[in-house]
Design a protein around this nucleic acid. Structure first.
Lengths: 209, 209
DNA sequence: TGTACATCAGTGAACGCGCGTTCACTGATGTAC
DNA sequence: TGTACATCAGTGAACGCGCGTTCACTGATGTAC
C-alpha cells in the first residue's frame, strides 16, 4: 500500500519549511548564522524544536538550502545584468542597480551572503564562493566575447579582475546596508565608476574613454 | 598600606593575558570568534575558566583588546607603506607586499580581521572599521598631497575609491590565505595592478601610463 | 631582623540554563478492498 | 459505502552536556613597623 502526499499536504509542509528558512535569515542578520541554534530558529518559526527534524537534519543543511534557493536566485538575477557584448558601462550600471534593489528588497539575504562568505562555517563559505563564481565567470566570458567580436588589441578581463569587480559590488552592498538612503545616489555612482575602472577594456596602450 | 605589583608579577600576569589573546586568535581562525566560549579559550590557554575574569570581563572585552593591540599594529605597518607623495605604483607595491608578508607571519590575525569585519559581533565590526579607516584616510591624504605638489588636473583619490582599494587589499589577503604558495607571485601582481587601477590619478582626460 | 597584615592571580565546587537529540505518541489524511 | 490500515508532520517529556557566573578559598609575594 503506497500513500503519496497530496498537493495540499506538500504545500502545507513547504509553508513551514519556508517559515524556517525565513526565521533563520531574520535571526542570522542580527547575530550571525553560526551562532544560531535549532531551538531558536524553531521558536521563531512557531514550531516545536523536535519538528525541525521533519525538514532539515541540522542547521548546516538549512544553511545550504538558503544558498541553493535564495542566494542562487539572487546571483541568477545579477548574471542577467551582464551585457552579452561586454559593454562595461551598461554592465556596471545594471549590476549596481540590481544589487541596490536587492539591498532594499532583501536586506537579510544580503547580510547573510556578505557575512557567511567569509564566515566560520566552511561548507557555507564554499557554497557561496561557488555561487559568486558564476557571476565573475560570466563577466569574463562577456569581456572575451567583446574582444573577439571587435578584434581589439585587448587581453580581455582577467579572472582576478573579474573577481575583484564582484568583491567591489559586494562591498558596495555592505555599505548600502549601513547607510542612510540619502547617500544612495552618490554610492551608486561611485560604485559603478569603481567597477568600471576594473572591468573596462585595458591593453598596453590604453584606449581613451 | 599600599601594595603595588612588582615588575615580575606584572610580567607574569601579562604572559597569561597574551596566552588568552593567542588562544582566542587560534580558535577563532577555526570556528569564528562569535562561537568562542570563555571556557573554551581558557582551556586552550591552560588556565581555569574562573581565572579568565582576572584578565577580561567577558569575550567582548578580549575581542576589543585583540583589535586595539594586534590589529592596530598591523594597520600601522600598512599605513607606513603609503608613499607620502601619493605615488600609485610605489604604494600599491608596498601595500601588497606588506599584506602578503602579514598573511605568512600572522595568518590567524588576518583571518580574524577578515571575518569579524563583516561578522555578527557589532562592537568588533565597528572597531575594525575604525582601524581600517585609518589606512584609507592615509591613502586619500597622500593622493591629495601629490595633486597639490604637482598641480595636476586631477581630482585626487575619492574616499570611496580609497575604501574600495582597501577592500581589494583585504580581498587579496583572503585569497592568499586559501591559496597554494606557488600562485603567490601571480596573485601579488594582479592585486597590485587592480589596486593601482583604482587609486592611480584620474581626471576627465586620463594620463597615459 | 621578625611578625602581622594586604594584595591579588589562580582555583574547584556548585548553581541554573539552554542546548541538541531521542523517543513514543497523536491526529489528520489518504489508500485498499 | 464502510472499515481497516499506512503515512507522516507535529508534539511534549526526558536525557546528558557544556556553558557563564558566583563564591569562598589558597598561596605567593610585598609592605609596615
Amino acid at each position: 500500500m503506497v500513500v503519496r502526499a497530496t498537493p495540499e499536504k506538500k504545500e502545507e509542509k513547504e509553508r513551514v519549511r519556508l517559515a524556517l528558512l525565513g526565521a533563520a535569515l531574520r535571526l542570522s542578520a542580527a547575530h550571525g548564522f553560526a551562532s544560531l541554534g535549532l531551538r531558536e530558529v524553531s521558536r521563531e518559526a512557531g514550531i516545536a524544536p523536535t519538528s525541525f527534524y521533519r525538514h532539515f537534519a541540522d542547521m548546516g543543511e538549512l544553511g545550504r538550502a538558503l544558498i541553493e534557493e535564495r542566494v542562487a536566485e539572487l546571483v541568477a538575477r545579477l548574471v542577467q545584468c551582464v551585457a552579452p557584448d561586454g559593454d562595461s558601462d551598461a554592465t556596471t550600471g545594471a549590476l549596481t542597480s540590481a544589487m541596490l534593489t536587492a539591498v532594499d528588497d532583501e536586506p537579510e539575504l544580503l547580510r547573510f551572503l556578505l557575512s557567511e562568505r567569509v564566515g566560520s562555517f566552511a561548507s557555507l563559505r564554499n557554497a557561496l564562493r561557488d555561487e559568486l563564481a558564476k557571476l565573475s565567470l560570466t563577466l569574463c566570458k562577456a569581456s572575451k566575447a567583446r574582444v573577439e567580436a571587435r578584434e581589439q588589441d585587448d587581453e580581455g578581463l582577467s579572472p582576478f579582475a573579474a573577481d575583484a569587480a564582484v568583491t567591489l559590488l559586494l562591498d558596495g552592498a555592505a555599505r548600502a546596508l549601513d547607510q542612510a538612503p540619502a547617500q544612495r545616489t552618490a554610492l551608486s555612482e561611485a560604485l559603478a565608476a569603481a567597477m568600471a575602472r576594473l572591468i573596462e577594456p585595458h591593453s598596453g596602450a590604453r584606449r581613451r574613454p
